[in-house]
Design a protein around this nucleic acid. Structure first.
Lengths: 129, 129
DNA sequence: TATTGACTTGGACCCGGCTCCACATGATAT
DNA sequence: ATATCATGTGGAGCCGGGTCCAAGTCAATA
């Protein structure tokens, strides 16, 4: 699969795919005799994994370290697991922050809706902020 | 309340508080005769709100627009509500992405844990990626 | 054989969101 | 009166994460 095809398949620009490889977010992609990238199944799986993680805001640095350890073999399994656990914790914390924000948004939206009910204007519904 | 006190109270640097005011993320803070900021209850509520929203990653641009509309009075209530609704939708989408990522992290961590059980090494638990 | 077009690289640039800095000003302590 | 200290301002710098570009190489087609 060429970079253009992989780009379309995962909806990630070719520039970004090269960038990811350059910084080690995905391992080196196999090349043909002319030096053209030929994305195989393994490369695709890495792309797909990283797309998922990045979409969720997992730090690139942690992912790069994970990939580097992965390439060093089984001896690094425990370290890799620790990275995943740390990132999971951060993810959970961030989701909690978002949940809190979501609840406030809901409250505020409710207040604006109350305000919009005729006869309810100034009386029961002081819209603040 | 001085900027230093507000900074400590909300754990946001004085530079960031000034920056927020400069870009309109919070309305202008009252000043004393010497031009020194004197954060009052209202200012504090804005800070607290924005801290919550920014922690959850709500876009600054949307929040700035919200503040600008707020300062124009009741006529903008509907527009403000629409901003909140849009941001709520984005938040929900991002939380779903994070949930997907969280589930993958959980799976991967499980696999590393299976691998760590003696006798389970190569047989049943191919740790990939 | 010459042109087209996809691909390569390294490096420059951009954007959001702060963060830092230099310099000015005014209140307070010695 | 002078030194200290918090605060003010405008603008530069930084960082993460891409995004864009120029110049070169190769394969396929006219």
């Amino acid at each position: 699969m060429t970079i253009t095809e992989a780009s379309r398949k995962y909806d990630i620009s070719a520039d970004t795919l090269r960038y990811y490889e350059r910084i080690g977010l995905i391992p080196d992609v196999p090349r043909n005799k002319s030096g053209i990238r030929d994305y195989d199944e393994t490369s695709c799986q890495w792309i797909e994994l990283m797309k998922c993680m990045r979409k969720a805001g997992v730090q690139i640095e942690a992912l790069i370290e994970y990939v580097a350890l992965f390439q060093q073999g089984d001896a690094t399994n425990e370290a890799r697991k620790q990275i995943l656990i740390e990132q999971r914790e951060q993810l959970i914390r961030r989701m909690a922050d978002m949940q809190a924000s979501l609840e406030r948004l809901n409250q505020k939206i409710d207040r604006y809706e109350q305000w919009a009910i005729p006869g309810n204007k100034k009386s029961s519904c002081p819209v603040q902020h």
